[in-house]
Amino acid sequence: MSNGNLPEQIVFRIRRFAPGRDKEPVWKEYPIAYEVGMTVLDGLWKVKETIDPTLAWRASCRMGVCGSCGMLINGKAGLGCNTQIAELGTAVVTVAPLANFPIVRDLVPDLRPLFDAHTALSPYIIRADTAEQEEPTREYYQSAEQMEAYLQFSYCIKCACCMAACPTCATDPVYSGPVALAQAHRYNTDTRDDGFEVRKEVLADEVGPWRCHFAGECSRVCPKGVDPAKAIQLMKRQLVADALGLRKKPPLAQPVEKPEGIERRPGIPEAPPPTV
């Protein structure tokens, strides 16, 4: 089956590299038959199954959820599973591993720098009432407006496309990068969280948002529509206000009591008991 804009045969031009075996990366070309609806990830599978079984990449969900198949596609960072070859509009599809990371093999980047930076910024809810968190008895109240303040940043799937596009990450290994900083902002903005001071210990130092030049490439390439560049600017504003003693600490969300005297509508099942 052919597509009106693409020939029946397309060529995958893939950057191959096996550290320890190869001295430097090489480009190899693999002609495959194009099928309507084919994604870049489908094309890679086809190359592996029909031409070269040694080709390596990382993928899992194939539906833009897990964030495993981040790669440079025609020079732009994106998810292989999310990118239709027809959308690219080129008969030659160039695929390379994500930039700004060491390479494990072929299209597999070593994402440890990302996860180290992410872990260092405590990307989870921090608050004093640990007993309530461990064994929740009630729910923390949060208004729709309060949730809206951080919601888009919680869509991040840590695919590292933003890190590969970031010009600061390309030159400065100390910089935490858009993933970790956007997630730190996501938790700093969450009214259930009280961990600003803990994260500030890291953010206020050299690894923090200070080297971001607001190039905006992170936001441009994000396959989930997250705007990490905005998160970083908001974080700078928050930290500057804090340094000047002007930061307004929002009231911490408190557990709400279960309403009393309300009849449950018939036919609505109870929420299942906590499993964790």
Binding site: L203, A204, D205, G208, K236, L239, V240, A243
Partner: peptide, 12 residues
Amino acid sequence: MRDQKLWTWHLA
């Protein structure tokens, strides 16, 4: 802390 303060002074 140092970079947070230096950046604040930079803006000021």
